[in-house]
Design a protein around this nucleic acid. Sequence first.
DNA 1: GCATTTTCTAAACAAATGTTATCGTTTTTA
DNA 2: TAAAAACGATAACATTTGTTTAGAAAATGC
Lengths: 192, 192
Amino acid sequence: MNKYSRMEAVIKEMINISGQEIDDLTEYCSVKKISKNEIVSPVDYIPNDIFFINTGLLRVILTDKEGNNHTIHFAMENQFIADYSCFIQQIPSIYTIQAIEPTEVVVLPRKAVEWGYKNLTEGEKLGRIIAEFYLIYKDNRIMNLYSRTPKERYDAIGEVFPNIHNRAPQHMIASYLGITPEHLSRLKKEKV
Amino acid sequence: MNKYSRMEAVIKEMINISGQEIDDLTEYCSVKKISKNEIVSPVDYIPNDIFFINTGLLRVILTDKEGNNHTIHFAMENQFIADYSCFIQQIPSIYTIQAIEPTEVVVLPRKAVEWGYKNLTEGEKLGRIIAEFYLIYKDNRIMNLYSRTPKERYDAIGEVFPNIHNRAPQHMIASYLGITPEHLSRLKKEKV
DNA sequence: GCATTTTCTAAACAAATGTTATCGTTTTTA
DNA sequence: TAAAAACGATAACATTTGTTTAGAAAATGC
């Protein structure tokens, strides 16, 4: 059980990969500890890392042109997280990624990712599966925004982010749901 | 210039592929003409086809549990379209795909896709790039829903779907924007 | 452990958006 | 070509959601 074991287990559920290949890949990786509220990935810089979360909780923040922050995503243990969109396009990031809890991540620099695509037997497949995973997540997200009320989204958030109510403050959850914290407070009261 | 030329050109922008590989792939494909309003891909059935649009315009419809229809996506010439999420997961489709104009598509059955992953030199990479493309599109979509007003989304829709105002009725555009057609009418008047 | 900050609730009011109904125009179809 | 259906605009009204302000409780930092 080393610092890359969790990532290894997750990757092995997606593709066939040898122990040697894992070792070669992790040669390009490192582990980073992030304290609460610390920024892992800042806005306006080209994101050159993908993160795998060993322990802890992160959120992805969108700052709009009025300067308002929107929490548009949470990421927890055993998940990959990045500003994929900007990482892929190699353009300055539109998101800030910040720790909600003290968090430990594996850092996969672009070199690791590119090395993986080229040299892992099923490297491209791994990339495809991770992209597909996020595609499915985002598709679901859009579906919810169109077809569910904020209250229904509130009731269902635990399915996607287990125990999030005990880990993230309510105003971040409200933001994720697309409403103000005051309104979420009101919905909870009406509920009963 | 045959019926697969357009798709060939699009694929060649994504990966390296030989003429022979294209020919082998299209052996699994067929061309289908769809009349206006016709359903290409029905809800509740496992989607086993991906489509490439030669000419015409399609829309993707989400029917919520109250029976309301939401137009959540448009697709036009030179684009791949499918209920990817359900195609990947092999679960019954949650979307209906319908033609807005008379449309001609190339049909890629699951067999073609799987054959491509296995046998094309860069098959997995093609899958990854298409998935990444949709991931970026959906990411942008979510960003817009969070950070822009309906009016701003209306003003910007032409960037994503060129000339859509002349090709799709306004109530479908309103639905895509997440508002009622009456409200869109009001916004257009206020505008000036 | 105390002071400070953050978080959550609450309520009154304002703004945005949905609902319903109507009507004239355009498009479709028989 | 005539009838029917779909489309888009409009207005009055209803509902949802945001804004502002205030205060109490909880978490945090020194």
